[in-house]
Amino acid sequence: MLKITDLVKEYPNGLRALKGVTLTIADPGVVAVIGPSGAGKSTLIRCINRLVDPTSGRVVLDDMDVTALGRRDLRKARRRMGMIFQEYNLVERLTVMENVLSGRLGYVSFWQAWRRRYPPQDVAAAFDLLDRVGLDGRENTRADALSGGQRQRVGIARALMQRPDLLLVDEPTASLDPKTARQIMRILVELAHELGTPALVNIHDVHLAQSFADRVIGLCDGEVVFDGGPADLTAEALTAIYGEEDWSATIRPADEDDENGENAAVAEAV
């Protein structure tokens, strides 16, 4: 169970990205975080595993106060949280298998990591995950030879290699075409449900969020302005999150021109 209380993040340049976010994720399932660019979605996710250190507030994962941990304990905490990135962030010059196994880095010794001597059960698990994400037989391909969708599949496998208690997913589909985006979301949601792992997914595509999430959180200007089921995401709710706009078209099909709207939102936010 993840409990976030009054989370505030103020960057050194004075930007207040989060202004007191409080939310609880108790059940397994996919929680989509939507909101305009600059709303603090990315900061929120990075504050949970402290890739970004919050200014104040608390993040508690199953009775463990992540915000209070020292370096060593923080690393132990990070092992329990798998993270998936928009730009995949694979080690491009390593093979698919090395990338997937890097999810176990928190558990193996430096020597094992250097010699790539991971325990056999880890290698077996990695093979299983590669099958699940549809990359069987590609374990010796170098990551820089893969397409965007394939790279994200490796990213998902790497995060799940950690056997995490929580998945943090930052815009998993923003760099992908619409069809690949749906495939990736489907894999992600299926695996999260199957493993019973709660997943916090930042996503800017409202339609994708509606079709795949069990719960939607709307973030605007560093504050939670919506929290409910995907069906509750009405035109009024979207106006509260993104501002005034004719939402009747968005609620039905996925909007492929979303990128332009996003950029306009950035200009407003900055």
């Binding site: 090395e98 790539r116 001597r117 059960q121 290698v123 077996a124 010796n140």
Partner: peptide, 11 residues
């Protein structure tokens, strides 16, 4: 879990 596939680190 009877996975017998082996993986060798790339040389």
């Amino acid at each position: 879990m009877a996975d017998t596939r082996i993986w060798r680190p790339p040389a």
